[in-house]
Design a protein around this nucleic acid. Structure first.
Lengths: 210, 210
DNA sequence: CGCGTTTTTTACCATTTGGTAAAGGCACGA
DNA sequence: TCGTGCCTTTACCAAATGGTAAAAAACGCG
């Protein structure tokens, strides 16, 4: 609808839009929305500031475009968790994917963290329309597993929040983690091992006898 | 040393410094360092911008003063955990205090979160000199408990990181939590219950038979 | 090539923002 | 009550920042 009259973008347009988005991800994730400047983004993208504006309507438009583009990627790990497999393995798989996201895409994680920290001014609609339904769906799935006794019982919503908190912590608070836990590369393997063991422990159903 | 030649501050000075710090906490925690403006802080403190500068050397000085003042309060819950009591109760007490901090002082939590997110540019010295030693000390304490079999074994450092991740999440990502988990006041009781049960579960030593 | 279209640059601009200068107000002890 | 030193305000300012106008350059296609 929004694009009904838009012509199809040229190769240059596509390439430059991507360059801008990548540069903006760098800058926004490092300095936050207000801390980022168009000049910084332009520099990082290797083009002039007015040239940025030629491709995007303005600073806010770039930010919103980033947020929109990232939302799907960000939800994917949770979306993939389905009722087909063994509950414990489905959950652990989800947790592993989430850890991998934090490791591989820390900029994206920090971009979201910045946005949420400031009250999600530009993302609340997305949270309500995309995140909430998925969250509710998966909460119900987990509750079902618990009801069947295939997963240790707890509050599914709180459980998912807990998973997010821990996995994202490694990306968002990287600066702190690095100070406290020396060793760069090994840091992740230790973190992965701990998180996996922890949730395996928590999620494995207790044999209730009978 | 720094204050060797300073006169003792008057009553007005004390009062206004407090007003400024409180206002600055509001503004910085909501918008981040660069997102905050002196005008906003001045408004919130009910005084003029040059008057701010009369009491503090500038924007950065206010931010640093805030960070310094907050550090002690922030470390207190962990500092209080000592070797006297029963390990499980000591840990759960710590976790409860940390949750209470997030509930009672979300602005402080977000201020730190903002700072760490951006790489702790103004706080890294503090992290190294104050946080790291405490972290190492308490990690060792926890490891000792585990070695004695009085706490379930895991990586102490990762365990503490995990506690921070979860407890701070409720303050820092409040905007998201609110969208996902309806109910304001009850939210905290559900969160408290979940976190306590979770860590009790994790920390209780498994009877290894004999 | 020739020419319309897309892309990029140069030169600006208005607003915001951190900060200053200096005069005025105010409190309070002698 | 008068002056002295602490506090506050008014009037500014230079730099930074988001954004625009319009000319110049590059592209691509018949």
């Amino acid at each position: 609808m929004t694009e009904s009259t838009a012509k199809k973008p040229s190769r240059i347009q596509l390439r430059n839009r991507k360059r801008i988005m990548d540069a903006a991800l760098d800058v926004f994730s490092q300095h936050g929305y207000r801390g980022a400047t168009l000049d910084q983004i332009a520099d990082a993208a290797g083009m002039s500031k007015p040239n940025l504006i030629y491709y995007f309507d303005g600073k806010e438009a770039i930010h919103v475009a980033l947020l929109n583009a990232l939302m799907e990627k960000w939800l994917a790990p949770l979306a993939e968790m389905g009722p087909e497999g063994e509950p414990l393995e489905e959950m652990l798989g989800y947790i592993r994917r989430k850890m991998e996201m934090s490791r591989a895409y820390p900029r994206e994680s920090r971009l979201f963290a910045n946005e949420i920290l400031q009250g999600a001014p530009r993302m609340r609609p997305h949270l309500e329309s995309r995140l909430k339904p998925l969250f509710d769906e998966k909460s119900a799935l987990v509750r079902g597993w618990m009801d069947q006794g295939r997963l240790a019982r707890s509050d599914p919503a709180q459980l998912i929040l807990t998973i997010w908190a821990i996995t994202q912590h490694y990306a968002d608070f990287d600066a702190q983690v690095r100070v406290l836990v020396p060793g760069e590369a090994e840091g992740w393997t230790a973190a992965n091992a701990h998180v996996e063991a922890m949730f395996r422990n928590l999620l494995t159903p207790k044999d209730t006898g009978s």
